[in-house]
Amino acid sequence: MAMKKFNKNIDWNLAGKVISGEASSREQIEFDLWLNKDNNINEWNKLLSEVEQAEYALTSESIDIERAWKSVRNKTTSKTIQTHKRYYLVAVAASIIILIGIFLFIDWHRTPQHLFTFSTQNLVEQVNLKDGSSVDLNRHSSISLPESFNTNKRTLELQGEAFFDIKRNEKIPFVIHTKHITIKVLGTSFNVKDYPNSDYSEVIVKTGIVEVIAHNDSLNKTLLNAGDKAIYNRETNQLTKTENKNINYLSWKTKDISFKKDKMTDAIKLLEEVYNVEISGTEELNPENEISATFEKNTIEHILSTINKSHSLNLEYKIKE
């Protein structure tokens, strides 16, 4: 009954303003008058507690507990100091090897500069470059680049997968070398996938124009626009340009996932990649089973419990170390 009364005489827009701290002093007075009437204060407190519950539920949905635990663990173990040292040594060693490599094969006629290497293990990380560009590095990936870029070319080396958001500079093109392809841009954003244990290298363009060139043949190249994808087949040396149909190609970075009548087995494979987990309980899965759902920055726990409920499954996950 009380609810009815509440509904009748509350000004919802004003309520929103008061809760959000947007009310003017006049509106605040109007509100206070209302609040002190009848039993309105009880109703108001109920609303506040419901808003709080909603906030609570929405917050819990989007917390990445694995990432948080790793961060806390790193701050609380003495072991990590040693690991960092080891990473540092590996990084230095890698830099030296790449330095020698570059010195011998690519830039041998130029004075070599000291290279910095950023590598990731089990976490996705962002590297901000001095020219204003940013690189999101997927797990088990690395980039190596000079301390400062040349005046005529910005170059870096990539192994693994990364999303590049390159600051536009028409005078100084940005060039990315992987083991198999070279990518040239002026200022765009795009995703590059070049893992050593695969037969393919892949480039997908989000904005702008990107040129992709096969490593062993500078005439074997293609120009990509936003929404295009290039696949380089390492065995046949074929470079193919198609329209990108995979809407989840950035999920590893954004944790936004959208399934549209996708095969459940494919969906699970994607979730395993994005969250670095192994999913079990797939034995009873019908291969024809399809899924349509959208997840925005949810935890793997939340996603699996949603899928389990809607598809009557018992999927469970385990973190890959």
């Binding site: 609810m3 509440f6 509904n7 000004d11 919802w12 827009n13 004003l14 309520a15 929103g16 809760i19 109920k46 609303l47 419901e50 808003v51 909603a54």
Partner: peptide
């Protein structure tokens, strides 16, 4: 405003 009404 509508969101609040909905929650309530």
């Amino acid at each position: 405003g509508k969101a609040l009404k909905f929650l309530r």
